[in-house]
Design a protein around this nucleic acid. Structure first.
Length: 559
RNA sequence: UGGGGCGUAGCCAAGUGGUAAGGCAGCGGAUUUUGAUUCCGCCAUGCGGAGGUUCGAAUCCUCCCGCCCCAGCCA
């Protein structure tokens, strides 16, 4: 197996990679350069992961490179906190831009010079109309707009006004610089789009050097050209901007000629990936922060224990196309489980403890049993667990009146305690309220290790923990933030799942679970994959459930 | 009623005139000291619809239907 090699491919098959491949083959480009261009006004989420994996992935596969570029053209919405988070998250996802870290704001001076070029060429003008007037004269989806009364302004006039805009002579909103294209275009982006607006706002990087800022449209394509981007990949909603992107590149003396390609953004069931909504969830306190493990942000997924490789794998499985789609969350969970199953050490933890006393096990005695750290990877070794007269098992693993096909413990039934002994339930103890508080069982000393010398079989193996040697832990179980598969983002507050977080504060876990690193994956056998949360302390262990195990019993039982 | 896109299984998604890949989910079964994992099998006479071209159409043509995006001095 070691010699088998997946040499070929790795470069996936999709229409964008087809284009890249063809461009390289035809010599249109000698190498591929892509870019990931976030605006630092929020945290990256799983949707961005698709864009990141695409642009960085293509660069990697075809031997080029991918730039990280901040589209920081609107200082009123951007902050350093987001810049730091973006870099941390892209690195965590597994990508590296090396020295290729750029900002649209690096190009403000060049962009400004190009704007003057456009003015000199008679292709841009300063418009004194108010925002309302511009809106009124832009026309509608079905009707052409009307030209601004300032559209015919002379070059010198425009140049003077634009320079004074830069110099700070005018208030916010007083004037804008517009491209002179076509007010009758069916494409509204071509109806004399705004190139520069006045914003007397300090910028995180350029400070107060500027009080006019380029629009996205005036910055993006030119930034691509400056950086030598060959394939500029973005989502579908920018398709209408491509003619403007091309118009600017065609009318400016840019150093290279990039091309924009659009793909469908990622959507997931039970999830909302709108920056506005995510920001609002944090702001309103519906979640604990951007890294709340229920959030679809990369920071949230990281804290939840999702391996970055699982995200990459998921994105690869989803593919890249132009059809709007909503991917089933089950597909993401599959990728997560697949990775965790291979890596995570196995441990025993009882989430909802039910006391078990082994009546025929000597008082005061205990012994060690050996447990595998990973059933499919013997190199992971073993650990020793203490077995004693008083134990805890999972409440769900006992039913006084077992339904059909319930294989676990019930009065008179015999089951195996993993790595330990067969036990049989002899008596059920209840409190005044009629609640089961304790089980009295007997064990078969001949079954040590979990096998009966007489060959008798048992239909279930339960995880357990020693009452005296286990530790109490807090376990946080996460469910989808949105109960419905297709929540309406416009009314997200009403769509929130009231049971998205379930906290268990008296789980019992085997002592080997202390002292792990935060984020390191572990499987609680028969339960799911967990990791230590950042809130955890040596005194108080706190675990996050990353994802549960597949549970075919739940299906049978109709839970 | 303008412009730009998109419709292949429950969900993603290959396919580019030669007779519908793959994955997820689901359903059977085998193995199992995790009802996990692993393994095996099943799951589109059908590609939004109707016509047409062709020996042959998911692929080409025509018409129709449906869905998404665009009227920020956001990105």
């Amino acid at each position: 197996m070691a010699l088998v090699e997946p040499t070929a491919r790795e470069a996936g098959q999709d229409f964008i990679r087809d284009i890249v491949r063809a461009d390289l083959a035809s010599g249109r480009h000698k190498s591929v350069v892509t870019r990931f261009p976030p605006e630092p006004n929020g945290y990256l989420h799983i949707g961005h992961a698709k864009a990141i994996c695409l642009s960085f992935g293509i660069a990697e596969e075809f031997g080029g490179h991918c730039n990280l570029r901040y589209d920081d053209t609107n200082p009123t919405r951007e902050a350093q906190e987001y810049i730091d988070a973006i870099e941390r998250d892209v690195h965590w996802l597994g990508f590296d831009w090396g020295s290729h870290l750029y900002h649209a704001s690096d190009y403000f001076e060049q962009l400004y010079a190009w704007a003057e070029d456009l003015i000199r060429a008679g292709k841009a003008y300063v418009d004194d109309q108010s925002q309302d007037e511009m809106r009124a004269t832009r026309g509608t989806l079905t009707e052409a707009g009307t030209e601004s009364p300032y559209r015919g302004r002379g070059v010198e006039d425009n140049l003077d006004l634009f320079r004074r805009m830069r110099a700070g002579a005018f208030a916010n909103g007083a004037r804008v610089l517009r491209a002179k294209i076509d007010m009758g275009s069916g494409n509204i982006n071509l109806r004399d789009p705004v190139l520069y607006r006045i914003l007397h706002t300090a910028h995180p990087r350029t400070g107060t050097a500027w009080c006019i800022y380029p629009s996205y449209d005036f910055a993006h394509g030119q930034s691509d050209a400056i950086e030598g981007i060959t394939h500029s990949l973005c989502t579908l909603e920018f398709e209408d901007h491509r003619p403007l992107y091309d118009w600017l590149l065609d009318n400016l003396p840019v150093p290279s000629r990039p091309h924009q390609y659009e793909f469908a953004r990622l959507n997931l069931t039970h999830t909302v990936l709108s920056k506005r909504v995510l920001t609002e969830l944090v702001r309103s306190g519906h979640v604990a922060g951007w890294d709340d493990p229920r959030m679809p942000t990369l920071a949230g997924l990281r804290r939840r224990g999702v391996p970055p490789a699982a995200i990459r794998d998921f994105v690869k499985r989803v593919g890249v196309a132009k059809a709007n789609s909503v991917v089933d969350m089950a597909m993401f969970e599959f990728s997560i489980r697949e990775h965790l199953n291979k890596k995570a050490a196995r441990r025993m933890a009882v989430l909802r403890p039910l006391k078990v006393v082994i009546d025929n096990y000597p008082q005061g005695q205990s012994e060690e049993v050996e447990a595998l750290n990973h059933p499919d990877d013997h190199a992971a070794g073993t650990r020793r667990l203490r077995f004693s007269r008083e134990l805890y098992i999972e409440r769900d693993d006992f039913k006084e009146n077992p339904p059909k096909k319930f294989f676990r413990l019930s009065p008179g039934a015999e089951v195996r305690l993993r790595y330990a002994y067969f036990i049989t339930c002899r008596e059920v103890k209840k409190n005044e309220a009629g609640e089961i508080v304790e089980l009295r069982c007997t064990y078969d000393p001949a079954t040590k290790g979990g096998n009966a010398p007489d060959g008798r079989k048992v239909k279930a193996t339960l995880h357990w923990v020693s009452a005296a040697d286990s530790r109490t832990a807090e376990v946080r179980l996460y469910n989808p933030l949105f109960a419905r598969p297709d929540p309406n983002p416009a009314d997200f507050a009403a769509e929130l799942n009231p049971n998205s977080l379930e906290v268990i504060d008296d789980a019992r876990v085997e002592p080997t679970l202390a002292g792990r690193n935060s984020g390191e994956a572990v499987q609680f056998e028969r339960q799911g994959y967990f990791c230590l949360d950042a809130d955890s302390t040596p005194e108080r262990l706190v675990f996050n459930r990353t994802v549960g195990l597949r549970d075919s019993w739940a299906k049978i039982a109709g839970i």
